[in-house]
Design a protein around this nucleic acid. Structure first.
Lengths: 182, 182
DNA sequence: TTCCCATCTTGTCAATGGCTAGATGTGGGT
DNA sequence: ACCCACATCTAGCCATTGACAAGATGGGAA
């Protein structure tokens, strides 16, 4: 093992995702991540400062991935919502950290930029719908965010089947008319 | 200070609510709660077992309070939703723990009973609406739950004003017609 | 009274986050 | 080619925490 890991930052972030994904945020330990990466227990601190710094980096990465996912979803507002849900359930670790301001450094420049990009896409889609775009946009965001949260928490009935299909049904409740949502 | 505190369980739960409400779940420490109650560091363990036990008791209390709040909201389904949001923002500590299965003992009998009572009220209200009661109910739950979560996380614009009014506007987006929702 | 048991205390241990000082490699400037 | 500044990583330390074990205390029931 070389003295310099070389990719320690990426390795630690990847390990953090895996740990959170399997054991939850409570089982996340900086020292454990260091062990997984094969470095000393204080090595991660150089890249992230402290625990909040690590989670901040994770959240920023999450917002970037979310922005990409929403962009790729196209122009149909309902499909953007479905993409939001799909992102949340396939990136549980990122998603869990992204909306926990108590765990991250909210003023981190990298975080605020990634956050701004994702927000712009999210709000931009809502601007083209109905009369009161704002209330409608907030309702849509609340709907997909709540569904994702409840799904991830395992609070929903377990016979809903595929996430995409279930999310699409939920979204259709708020936007019954497909062609209104472009 | 008497050898027996007498109300230690209640005192610890109340202190936990205060700590979580001000500093978040991350600042919660069993030893700190013991200090606040004026007992030794191991005293709470007798009542709750471990950290998960304490949070389980908190969650169960939360479900009981939620069930009461929803019942008191009356028959108008939209007002039940508003009551859900109001509960979530005025009982942040309870609300935060209630939907975190990774932090609580999901099989605790006290918890499952309280949970069942709240669920019955929640789903019962949805049964009287529209054709596909289930999808509609899930959408409504997702909507109010997501709004509450985002509100508590401080992710929403800060010029929304009163929580009740904002929640009512959001709920009206999903249920535009008042008299359909009874 | 006497005994059982719920309640609480004291002591201990491993694990963790964060800090400081120092070691090690790497790349740029001259 | 040399040297030095800096980024990276190590080693050691400390306070705090959660969990456990053993014992002290006191109330209530037989």
């Amino acid at each position: 093992m070389a003295y310099h890991h070389g990719q320690l930052r990426e390795a630690v972030l990847a390990a953090a995702v895996e740990v959170i994904e399997t054991g939850g945020l409570g089982t996340l330990s900086l020292r454990d991540l260091a062990r997984r990466a094969g470095v000393s227990h204080a090595a991660p601190a150089h890249h992230f400062g402290d625990r909040a710094g690590l989670l901040t980096a994770l959240a920023a990465e999450g917002y970037r991935l979310l922005a990409d996912a929403l962009t790729a979803a196209g122009d149909d507002f309902r499909e953007v919502g479905v993409a939001y849900v799909r992102f949340g359930v396939t990136h549980r670790a990122h998603f869990e950290v992204m909306f926990r301001p108590d765990l991250v450094r909210a003023d981190d420049p990298e975080l605020v930029e990634a956050q701004a990009r994702a927000s712009a896409i999210l709000y931009g889609g809502a601007a083209s719908i109905r009369a009161d775009a704002r209330t409608t946009g907030l309702a849509a965001w609340s709907l997909v965010h709540g569904f994702t949260t409840l799904w991830n928490a395992g609070m929903l009935p377990d016979d809903l089947g595929d996430v995409d299909a279930a999310a699409r049904r939920i979204a259709a409740t708020l936007f019954p008319d497909p062609h209104l949502s472009r």
